[in-house]
Computed example of a mutant assay.
Amino acid sequence: MTTSTSIAVLVGSLRSDSVNRKLAEVLRDQAPDGVDIQIIDGLGEVPFYNQDVDNATDIPAAAARLREQVGGADRVLAVTPEYNGRMPAVLSNAIDWLSRPYGAGALVGKPFGVIGATPTPYGGKWAHADAVRSAGIAGAQVVEDVTVSQSALEVDVLTDPEVLARLANAVRLLVDHDTETVAA
């Protein structure tokens, strides 16, 4: 019997030619045996979080779909650039929706990591720190060793073997994270 680990990927860029979207696709296409990486589409369709709407009997379909997809995954990986020294609004909004209902949201107890590339010397470290902090507050089990902030200034992050090896290793660390040890 083969066990599979599913990873829901939240891409922090809506741009059609996004490097981070392409990185997520490379990771999906090169996923190790037994790992199913699903890129969650439609984050741009999820309305800004509003508790009045969330308390309604029918939450917006895009938000319900996001919660269902992430809730059904074993792990969560954010693949994101950095906008003005912070995580993009679309990723922040997704985490807001996934954090509810408080204490029982789709992120609670899920191993979470963040990677990404930006054309800056710091590779998105501030955005990645924001995502880690926010997901942790939302109840995710942040796997610190998974964070990869890669500068895209002097390297093609989509083809460089060292960069791709670091990203693949981050996926392995996320998959291998033992949730039972953390919970004990």
Rank of each mutant, 00 (worst) to 15 (best):
R28P: 04
G85C: 09
P121H: 12
P121L: 14
I7L: 04
R67M: 07
M87A: 14
A184F: 15
R15Q: 03
S4C: 01
D160S: 04
V143R: 13
K125Y: 11
D156E: 10
D74Q: 10
V143S: 06
N55K: 08
L164D: 03
S134P: 02
Q51V: 06
A183V: 15
A24N: 04
G116S: 14
A78V: 11
V9Q: 03
D58N: 10
V182P: 05
D160R: 07
L158K: 05
I115E: 07
A127Y: 12
V182E: 13
I37S: 00
A8W: 00
G34E: 05
W97F: 02
L91D: 00
D36W: 03
T159K: 04
V175E: 15
G116R: 06
I95S: 05
A73P: 00
R133D: 13
I37G: 01
S99Y: 01
S134D: 13
I137R: 10
G124L: 10
Y49M: 05
T3P: 00
P47M: 08
R65V: 08
R65N: 07
Q38N: 06
L77W: 03
S151K: 08
G103P: 11
P121V: 12
Y49T: 08
L107R: 10
S134N: 15
A183M: 10
A170H: 14
V70G: 02
A129T: 15
D36G: 01
R133C: 06
P32M: 02
N50W: 08
D178S: 09
R28L: 03
S134I: 13
G12Q: 02
P101R: 01
A165S: 13
D145C: 14
A61G: 03
S18Q: 00
P47R: 07
P32N: 06
N84I: 00
G124P: 12
V53M: 11
V146A: 05
D33N: 02
P119S: 12
P119A: 15
D145T: 15
A129I: 14
G42S: 07
A127V: 09
V157M: 04
N93G: 13
R86L: 10
Q30I: 03
F112C: 02
I137V: 15
A31F: 00
T181N: 09
T2Q: 09
D156M: 11
N93H: 09
L164K: 07
V90I: 15
S6L: 03
P101Y: 09
A8Y: 01
D33G: 05
T181H: 06
R166A: 11
D178I: 15
T159Q: 06
V146Y: 07
A94P: 13
G85P: 14
R15V: 00
